[in-house]
C-alpha cells in the first residue's frame, strides 16, 4: 500500500472520534472522517409478511424500502433487476397476486400479506416455465438485465389478455380478444425496455409461449 494514498494506520470509528487521530488519517480533514453514532431516534422498522414464490417471509423493513429492494437486498432474490428505480424501464417487473407491477414503484409495506412471484419462482424444479424456455429458444435477450422483467411482464400480460383487458391498439373493445396480434404484444410489452433490442425475438418467444398455454 502506498502511504501517500491510503494512511497506513489502524483506523476505527472510535480512534478517529475519540483520540483525534484524524490528522493521521488525512491532514486536510477538518472534522471526523467517519460519521457519528446513528441517531437512535431511527425509523421504526415495519414488520410485514410476504409470500414470495410460495415461501412465507416475515421481514422487518425500513418503511422506505421498495418492494424491489426488499426482494433484492433482504431476500437475496436478485433475479429482479433495478434498471431505473423510477418505473421507466420495466426491469423490476414482478407479479403481485398475479398482476404485473413495477416493483421499484411500490413500497414493500404496501404488500403485507400479498403473494409475489419473481423470475426465480416461475420454473418448476428443473423445468423452465414455457415463457423462459421460449426466451432461450428465440434468443429473447442479450445482456440479460431486462430479461427477468420481460419474462414476468409477458406472463402477466398474457393473463391480462385472457381476462379480456384491451390495450391502446385494440381495435374493437366489445368483441372478446381471440388471439394477440404482433401489434398487441408490442404495445402491451412497451413498458419493458431492452436496450440490446431483442424485441423481435421477444415477440417471437411470447407468441410461442402463448401457443403452448392455450
Amino acid at each position: 500500500m502506498d502511504e501517500s494514498i491510503f494512511p497506513n494506520v489502524e483506523v476505527t470509528r472510535r480512534t478517529v472520534i475519540e483520540t483525534g487521530t484524524t490528522a493521521l488519517l488525512l491532514s486536510s480533514l477538518p472534522h471526523g472522517v467517519l460519521a457519528s453514532e446513528p441517531d437512535q431516534a431511527d425509523r421504526t422498522p415495519a414488520s410485514i409478511e410476504l409470500l414470495v414464490n410460495g415461501h412465507a417471509h416475515t421481514l422487518a423493513l425500513d418503511p422506505r424500502t421498495t418492494l424491489l429492494d426488499a426482494l433484492r437486498e433482504h431476500l437475496t432474490l436478485t433475479g429482479t433487476k433495478k434498471g431505473c428505480d423510477h418505473g421507466q424501464c420495466g426491469a423490476c417487473t414482478v407479479l403481485v397476486d398475479g398482476r404485473r407491477v413495477n416493483s421499484c414503484l411500490t413500497l414493500a409495506v404496501m404488500h403485507d400479506g400479498q403473494s409475489i412471484t419473481t423470475v426465480e419462482g416461475l420454473a418448476f424444479d428443473q423445468d423452465l416455465h414455457p415463457m423462459q424456455a421460449a426466451f432461450v429458444e428465440h434468443d429473447g435477450y442479450q445482456c440479460g438485465y431486462c430479461t427477468s422483467g420481460q419474462i414476468c411482464s409477458a406472463v402477466g400480460m398474457l393473463a391480462e389478455s385472457r381476462e379480456g383487458m384491451p390495450s391502446y391498439v385494440t381495435a374493437d373493445l366489445i368483441q372478446p380478444l381471440t388471439e394477440l396480434s404482433d401489434n398487441e404484444i408490442r404495445e402491451r410489452m412497451s413498458g419493458n425496455i431492452c436496450r440490446c433490442a431483442a424485441y423481435p425475438n421477444i415477440v417471437a418467444a411470447i407468441k410461442q409461449a402463448m401457443g403452448e398455454q392455450t
Partner: peptide
Amino acid sequence: LDRIDGRLKVTGGARY
C-alpha cells in the same frame, strides 16, 4: 445454438 448462459439469464440466476 442457444446461449450456454441462457438458463441463468431466464431464471434470474445470472448475478451482476
